[in-house]
Design a protein around this nucleic acid. Sequence first.
DNA 1: TTCCAGGCTATGT
DNA 2: ACATAGCATGGA
Length: 275
Amino acid sequence: MKYTCTKDTIIIEDTKDFDISHILECGQVFTYKKNAENDYDVYSCDQFANVKLLDNKYVITCTDVNYFVNYFDLDTDYGIIKKNLGKSKYIVDAINFGHGIRILKQNLLEVIIGFIISANNNIKRIMTTMQKIREYGEKRGGYYAFPSLDVLQNITIDEFKDMGAGYRAEYLYDTIRRLKKVDFEKTYKQDTSALKKWLLSLKGVGPKVADCILLFGYGRCDCFPVDTWIEKVYVDLFHKKENRIKMSSDLIKYFGEYAGYAQQYLFFYRRSFVK
DNA sequence: TTCCAGGCTATGT
DNA sequence: ACATAGCATGGA
């Protein structure tokens, strides 16, 4: 994808494969704020970006240009991915609907915390809880950096509950202590199945949340999280119901190496049907 | 009031 | 290995 950078801005002129509302509202990320149509603030780790559409160009004003070139995955060609996936009317419709989706290179810790909170929850409250957790982090001018594990470790179960985490509060409390014991750098080197096994051993992480962490936190694009919306997609495609593990493996077989991208287009598309 | 939200844990078979 | 109750919380 073509883009140009200055010291603190990235300009994207070709917006065929970049639409900020698609990117942020397709369910992969809970750490942003909508200011207006096509005007969003994005928080990741200790970084901040404002993304705004001006004269049909996206202007990303940010704390670190290199960080956000990587974060928005600007060097990946989504034309190739879309072409590879577009083998039936259903997915082609989904891709056309969410043509501007990109899978973000998110901060792993935020993904783990965010998706533990996401279980049997709604996106609005997940985002509110994540923002409240962020406020335990270091203040950087107008925003907060996401708190480190050492800071997260000082948050009590009751405090997590007060932030709206509900019964997931103790999962967070427990998992934060487990995460203190691992070297994140080493986990990146593990293959997907070993990584999944470890993720499933964390409190509050089941098959679906593990797949989300693999896809959004580790960039393992051959994973296919199955939630309530993807269940509906599966029924649309295969005219039957199975358990979520089976649905996930069927969908990976169906879509192949770029299954994770398909998952995002399909989730965003299917969720738009009802309101 | 009941159902649902990007499900998971614990328990029972 | 598979099925299901119970779980916090707020909005529809």
